[in-house]
């Protein structure tokens, strides 16, 4: 019982802390969650993390909430999902509640904006770090197609601003065709 309680508490405080530092939009939470739940706690593995991110991204709603809820569900079922949801919305709920009282002063504060500028650069470094880790794991597979898919998806997303849902659907289709073709090839070689 205490072991279970420990897990719930750890899930709550880890998610809470990560959420409190998710500046600059939904995707920022993914590297932070990965560092915590994959690298440190080993509650989920790297492939699962990518799959869960795809689910979080293609569902409606905030990516950060979606991603934490799925992780919570995986770690501790429905109660885990609930704990994660609360832990994710609590930091912005409290911070915005406090700021809403004096939001004009906050918005125009020079010190705050300096800290935010610095943090933005820090956030970029954190995302780059995780992308390097993930991409090098993919490169080690020594298959050309995933690398092509990655390059094409990046070009579509960054340069052409293609909707994420479209990118996800197209890449899912490529993945299915690739697995079908490879299976046919394997059967052909058996004959």
């Amino acid at each position: 019982m205490t072991e279970k309680k420990d897990k719930y508490l750890k899930l709550f405080f880890t998610t809470f802390r990560v959420s409190a530092f998710t500046f600059g939009g939904g995707f920022v939470i993914i590297p932070l969650l990965k560092r915590k739940f994959v690298d440190e706690l080993h509650w989920i593995n790297e492939e699962e993390m990518l799959d869960l991110t795809a689910i979080a991204q293609s569902s409606p709603g905030a990516v950060a909430v979606n991603a934490s809820v799925i992780i919570g569900y995986h770690v501790a079922g429905l109660l885990g999902a609930l704990i994660s949801a609360i832990a994710t919305v609590l930091p912005p709920l409290v911070i915005i509640s406090v700021i809403s009282v004096f939001y004009k002063a906050f918005r125009d504060n020079v010190i705050v904006s300096m800290a935010m500028k610095g943090m933005l650069a820090g956030v970029a470094a954190v995302i780059f770090d995780v992308v390097i880790n993930m991409a090098s794991a993919l490169i080690k597979q020594k298959r050309i197609l995933p690398l092509l898919v990655m390059a094409a998806a990046f070009t579509a997303s960054y340069f052409f601003k293609v909707n994420v849902i479209v990118i996800i659907l197209v890449c899912a289709l490529i993945g299915v065709m690739d697995s079908v073709i490879r299976e046919r090839k394997m059967k052909g070689e058996e004959r």
């Binding site: 995707f27 993914i30 590297p31 492939e47 990518l50 799959d51 991110t53 795809a54 991204q57 995302i127 995780v130 992308v131 993930m134 991409a135 993919l138 995933p146 690398l147 898919v149 990655m150 390059a151 094409a152 998806a153 990046f154 997303s157 960054y158 994420v164 990118i167 996800i168 890449c171 899912a172 289709l173 490529i174 993945g175 299915v176 690739d178």
Partner: peptide, 11 residues
Amino acid sequence: GLRPAVIAMIA
């Protein structure tokens, strides 16, 4: 198919 796409979108 999705895994490389997710990395690309985070990048």
